[in-house]
Design a protein around this nucleic acid. Structure first.
Length: 406
RNA sequence: GGGUGUGUCGCAUAGUGGCAAUUGCUCCUGACUGUAAAUCAGGCGUCCUACGGACUUCGCAGGUUCGAGUCCUGCCGCACCCA
């Protein structure tokens, strides 16, 4: 039997670190946590992509805190909701995914999540799929659920207002998304749901529905988003999302390309560094005595370490220092396809996906973006023959390829 | 079902019948840097025997025209209004 930890200091830290808001309020929820009662918490992840990203990891990380306090954690895979697509923050309908696509995407989710949560040992987290209950709902059940919400609630949301203003379509099934998510809470009979601050609407729907259908108080905890003070988020559209499937090198590199403004919050949300230390980091950033780059390197290291282990994080950091900071050629450059006899440099770049088209390759060469063994070359008509065997081609800052004949 | 609009290079926008097509963002390359931010320079349909040329693009299919993103017809998609 796992003991519920009710140490007030630990609970307070849980309630503070990375938390944006708690509903209905923090005090009530704190009482609940201190009561010694085991609570059931969940967070859902829609498999809209083949890997989880750092934003998901933040939530999983938070779940793991509760797991350590002895509570029951459900890692929910939204294989049903993922098919609808969450309209939150979307200026246009999401493409609907098929069940197959969704399940394919979800394949590695649990494995990725296990960098943060454990699914074995004592008090393991459980994995559930929300198609388990949502598939079975009848039209009649849907009416029952839907009768708890009004069209005005839906229309009031910013992104829908925006779409109305711009004459963009809003499809009815998009309204079903929050309902489905709300029903998840009821079906699993949870005490708490955790989500990003942008998920508040959906989660509150769950709170309302829980009250209506089970007369039960469901708590909602929203997490701060990984964004700088200008509200700039890390995101798919920004190109610097860290996917948990990223290689150690990429993961490290992407964190390094985050804006300075997210360093502090990055430590708070994405690492397991003690909260007291995180607070010190905020102070250090504030008084500017430390080069933010150094703190960012530490952040990149920590994140890489959680997901890939210490050894690989060390290697990634090494790579970064050597290749990027000192501009050396990395040790392990992936070899090219063996060129079929003689090819022009332009053709070579296209073949190796280092340029989109011959024209693009030519441009890159002309603008000095291509070098061989460290020497910039500008002759795009250059022919690669066997005398080039083993030379390293570099395009842009970080694309390397070793020419290999064979 | 009726009406009014609308469909341009990832997104957003301009486009009097002579346009490979405007502008913004994104993006790419370079300089300066810390693979940050800011700034500056160049680029962003494909291909070539390149200060030039060829080909393919503006929802789809036809038509008018020496010439069509631009005009006409039909289809398709989308939005709004009325029913």
């Amino acid at each position: 039997m796992v003991k519920i930890i009710t140490d007030e200091k630990l609970v307070d830290e849980f309630l503070e670190r990375g938390v944006a808001e708690i509903y209905p309020d923090k005090t009530t929820f704190k009482k609940k946590l201190l009561s010694g009662e085991k609570i059931r918490v969940y967070c859902g992840f829609d498999p809209s992509a083949p890997s989880l990203h750092i934003g998901n990891a933040i939530l999983i990380n938070k779940l793991s805190e509760l797991q350590k306090l002895g509570h029951e954690v459900i890692f929910l895979i939204g294989d049903f909701t993922g098919m609808i697509g969450d309209p939150t923050d979307k200026s246009a309908v999401r493409k609907k995914l098929t069940r197959e696509e969704v399940l394919e995407n979800a394949k590695n989710y649990q494995k990725e999540a296990s960098a943060y949560l454990f699914f074995d040992k004592e008090n393991p987290a459980t994995v559930k799929y929300n198609s388990e209950w949502n598939d079975k709902l009848s039209y009649r059940d849907l009416m029952e659920v839907a009768s708890n919400f009004t069209a005005q609630q839906m229309f009031a949301r910013d992104m829908f207002q925006e779409r109305i203003k711009n004459d963009k379509p809003i499809y009815l099934h998009e309204f079903l998304y929050p309902l489905a998510q709300a029903y998840d809470s009821v079906a699993m009979d949870v005490d708490l749901e955790i989500g990003g601050n942008d998920q508040m609407f959906n989660m509150m729907c769950g709170r309302d529905l829980m009250k209506a259908m089970k007369n039960k108080e469901k708590f909602v905890l929203t997490m701060k988003l990984l964004a700088d003070n200008e509200g700039k988020k890390m995101g798919k559209s920004e190109g610097n999302v860290v996917w948990l499937s990223d290689s150690p090198q990429n993961m490290y590199g992407k964190v390094m390309s985050w804006p300075d403004g997210v360093i502090g919050i990055g430590f708070e949300l994405c690492t397991n560094i003690k909260f007291s230390e995180v607070k010190e980091i905020y102070v250090e950033l504030e008084d500017g005595k430390i080069n933010p780059r150094d703190l960012k390197m530490k952040l990149a290291y920590e994140i890489t370490k959680i997901n890939h282990g210490e050894e690989k994080a060390d290697a990634a950091q090494d790579y970064f220092v050597k290749t990027i900071q000192k501009k050396e050629i990395p040790d392990d450059v992936s070899p090219s396809l063996p060129p079929p006899g003689e090819v022009t440099l332009v053709e070579f770049l296209v073949r190796e996906n280092m340029a989109e088209s011959k024209g693009d390759a030519r441009r890159k060469i002309e603008q000095g973006g291509v070098s061989i063994d460290g020497e910039i070359i500008r002759d795009y008509k250059g022919i690669i023959d066997e005398s080039w065997d083993g030379k390293i081609v570099k395009v842009g800052k970080k694309n390397f390829r070793k020419i290999t004949f064979e």
